[in-house]
Amino acid sequence: MKKSIMLGALAVAGLTAASASASTLDDVKARGKLNCGVLSGLTGFSQPDANGVWEGFDVAVCRAVAAAVLGDSTAVEFVPLTTQVRFTALASGEIDILARNTTWTFSRDTDLKLDFIGVNYYDGQGFMVPKSLGVTSAKDLDGATVCIQTGTTTELNLADFFRANNISYEPIPIETNAEAQQQYLAGACDVYTTDASGLAATRATFEAPGDHVILPEIISKEPLGPVVRHGDNEWGDIAMWTLNALIAAEELGVTSANVEELSAAATTNPEINRLLGTEGDLGAMIGLDAQWAVRAIAAGGNYGELFEKNIGVNTPIGLARGLNAQWTEGGLIYAPPFR
């Protein structure tokens, strides 16, 4: 008992005593807010607008979870995190879910006591070069100077790739995308390497995007996904199935426009009915009400809508669906069946 008394006193004395509670769901409900860890700025994935409202593809996942759990997509407290503190923040209970394009790896999932709840974007490390160099493959880059946006895996992938192909290079590690971009445009490096989505986003903002090409080689697998604490399976299920609901909604043709209508009464498609709660009680199985998926979808749209709105072809970033198309269209995005 001593512990809780002391912690309680600390809490009121101005020091927030955060405790990784047994049930994140109860915490979130009591708080009325979802604490969501994001990047402090990555075009298309998470960025604050002029009003300080967070937007982006990663942000949308948090909004969907908040909508499913709390019935309100704006009930999210966004916590910008650096690479180094993101896992600590999750482990200490400062955030409930981390949606900060984090690569799913073995050691993170096991050793760092995290749970990846799925993949919301399949990425990979790529290269961008000026067209004028005449380079068509990353293997032609012997002796090139490479700007790297430093992260946890980019340096390692780069070192491994060049070592495996037995070619040399000169790395210029840069902390932020802005500086890397400036160096690359000034010609201080021949190549810019980071996640392919980041390359596309960066290229889109150039004065002459057509003068730069993204090389075909993708040298790493970077399945990016939201992360929750290990051990709270109930909460992990909610996050995982919210993401899956968004994905399944696209496959089933449920959009933010027609979700109201489809959920008003049972349709002919039983899977849609189960998803939207007009049949069965899937919501109750994860501790939510029947309408949870409806709210998650209505918050920002299904997976495809979110993609198109934040990073799709018609946005300045202009990413094609590619690997991130539905499995029915030849991509890897695949939701387990709702039954």
Partner: peptide, 25 residues
């Protein structure tokens, strides 16, 4: 800013992350 607080310099990174201001240096 290096540890993630939004001081003016780090905030400038967030501002650059908005698609309309990406590239402003």
């Amino acid at each position: 800013g290096i540890i993630g607080l939004l001081d003016p310099l780090n905030l400038s990174n967030s501002i650059r992350a908005a698609a309309e201001w990406n590239g402003v240096y």
